[in-house]
Design a protein around this nucleic acid. Structure first.
Lengths: 272, 272
DNA sequence: GTCTATAGGGAGATAGAC
DNA sequence: GTCTATCTCCCTATAGAC
C-alpha cells in the first residue's frame, strides 16, 4: 500500500479515536512507522491531510449511491429506500469518524465533562417526552422515543440551517411547521412500526422517573433530605396495592413547587 | 457584577467566537481585566469554568419553559407551540455558543477547510434534492428545501441516537420508518406552508444547477475542456426559443457518463 | 485577591545530513 | 524519502511576593 494512503488510514483511525486537534502529527507518523519529518514530504500540513480524508469519505458514499442498481421490480420508492440505506449504512460504519466533531470538542480525558453532557441531554429528553405526552396523549407511548428523535432532529436541523444560511424566518412559522409535521406523523402512526423500542414498559418508565428525580435532588444543594423523604413516601404509596390517591396527588403538587425538578415531576405524573 | 460572573460572560463570548480549545485562559483573563494567575483563584481549571457555563445555559432555558404561562384560550397544542418557540428562540439567540462545537472543530483561521465543508455539504444537499424529486415528483418543488431539512434532520438524529445509545436496529426498519414519515408529511403538504423559501424559482434553480456543475468540473483534473464545452452547448440549447430536444437529451446522457458529476446532472435534468 | 515570573510540556513545521 | 535535531510558539497551571 502507498505510504500516502497508509498515512490517511492511520489518521482516520486516530482522528476518530481522539479528535482532530487532540491527534498530533507525531502520533500519525509513529502509527505509520515513519518520522514526523517524513510526514511533511507527503502532506504539506495536518489540515491538508484532513481535507484529503474528508473528500475521500464523501466521494466513496457518493459513488456507491450513484452506482446502486435498481432491480426490475423496484418502484421509485424502493430506489429511494435503497439510497437512504446506503447513506445510513456508510455513515454508521464510519460513525467514529463522523462523531469526531464531538470527540474533538469534549476532551475525552476528563470524565466530568462527559457526565455533564449526559446529564443535560437526559434532562432535555425528559422535557421533550413530557411535552409530547401532554400534547398528543398517552396513546403515543410506544412511539415516544421515536417522536422525541423526530422532534429533536427537526429542531436541530432547522436551527442549523437557519444559522448557517443566515436566514431570517419567523419563529412562529417554524413552530407551526414543526408542529404540523409531527401532527402528520402522529396521525399516521397506525401504519408505522417504532424503531427505538427501548424495552419499553410502564413499570420501567416509572422506575426511570423516580431514578431521575432522586439523582437531580441529590445533585442539588437545598432541601435534600426533605425532598428525598417526600419521594420515598410517594414511592411507597405508588407501589402499594391500595394507594391513597389524594396523598399521591398532594405529594406531586408539593414536589412541583420546586422549580428545578418540575419537569421531571410532570413527566412522572403522566404514568401514575 | 461578581468577578466570577464577569469571567463567565467573557468566556461565553470568546468560546462562541473561537471555540473552546482555541480560547486560552490568558484571553479570558485579559478580557475581564485580570491576570491569568487571578483566574485560577475563581475557577480551578478552564474546563470547570466551561461546565459552569453549560449548566447555566441549560438551566435558563429550562426555567423559562417551566415558567411559561398558558393563557385561558390556549389548548394543549398552543402550549406545545409556545414551549417549542421558547426553546428555539433561546437556542437561536445563543446560537454562536451552540455552534461552538463546530467552531472548535473547524479552525476558523483557515478558509480552505471551511470551503471544503461547504462544497461537500452542497453536494449532499443536491443529492437529497434529487432523490426526493425522483421519488415524490415535481409537485413537491415549493417544499424542497424543507423536505431536505426534514430528511437530513431525521437521518442525522437517528444516526446520532443509535451511536450514542449503542443501539442495534435493522437499517431497513429505520429506512422504512423515515420513508413513511416523509410520506406522511408529503401527503399533508396541502395544509402546510413552507419555511425555507429561498427565493425559489425554476430559472434560478437551473442557473444554480449549471453553476454547480461548472464548479465541479473546474475542480476536477480530467476532461475539463471537453466537459465545459458540452455544458456550454447545453446551456445555449436550453436558453434557445426552439431547443432541439434530442440534442439536450444526448448531451445529458453524455455528461452522466462521468460518474463524478452524475448526481448534479440528474438534478439539473429534473428542471429541463 | 491580585500580580509577575516561570515551570514544564506539547504542538506544528523546517533544516540539513544521508 | 527518510531520518534526527531544532526552531518557534503557545499552552495550562503554579509559586511566591504584595
Amino acid at each position: 500500500m502507498d505510504k500516502k494512503t497508509e498515512l490517511m488510514k492511520h489518521a482516520v483511525r486516530l482522528f476518530s479515536l481522539k479528535g482532530f486537534h487532540q491527534t498530533s502529527v507525531q502520533e500519525i507518523a509513529d502509527a505509520t512507522g515513519i518520522s514526523k519529518g517524513a510526514f511533511y514530504k507527503h502532506f504539506d500540513s495536518k489540515e491538508i491531510l484532513f481535507v484529503h480524508v474528508l473528500k475521500l469519505h464523501h466521494q466513496e458514499i457518493m459513488t456507491e449511491i450513484s452506482n446502486s442498481q435498481a432491480s426490475f421490480a423496484d418502484d421509485s420508492k424502493d430506489i429511494f429506500k435503497k439510497k437512504l440505506a446506503i447513506e445510513i449504512e456508510r455513515t454508521l460504519s464510519n460513525h467514529e469518524f463522523f462523531m469526531m466533531v464531538f470527540k474533538d470538542f469534549t476532551l475525552t480525558e476528563s470524565e466530568t465533562l462527559k457526565d455533564v453532557f449526559m446529564e443535560l441531554r437526559q434532562s432535555t429528553i425528559t422535557l421533550h417526552k413530557t411535552i409530547l405526552l401532554d400534547t398528543y396523549g398517552a396513546s403515543i407511548d410506544p412511539f415516544l422515543p421515536d417522536l422525541v428523535a423526530i422532534l429533536e432532529g427537526l429542531m436541530q436541523q432547522y436551527i442549523f440551517v437557519l444559522v448557517f444560511e443566515k436566514k431570517q424566518v419567523s419563529i412562529s412559522k417554524l413552530v407551526n411547521f414543526i408542529t404540523t409535521t409531527i401532527d402528520a406523523v402522529v396521525n399516521n402512526l397506525d401504519c408505522m412500526e417504532p424503531v427505538l423500542t427501548d424495552a419499553y414498559s410502564p413499570a420501567s418508565t416509572i422506575a426511570e422517573g423516580f431514578q431521575q428525580l432522586t439523582k437531580k435532588i441529590k445533585a442539588s444543594e437545598t432541601h435534600q433530605e426533605k425532598l428525598l423523604a417526600t419521594l420515598e413516601l410517594l414511592k411507597e404509596q405508588v407501589e402499594q396495592e391500595n394507594p391513597q390517591e389524594f396523598l399521591i396527588e398532594a405529594l406531586l403538587v408539593y414536589l412541583k413547587q420546586f422549580a428545578f425538578i418540575k419537569n421531571e415531576v410532570i413527566y412522572l405524573e403522566n404514568f401514575l
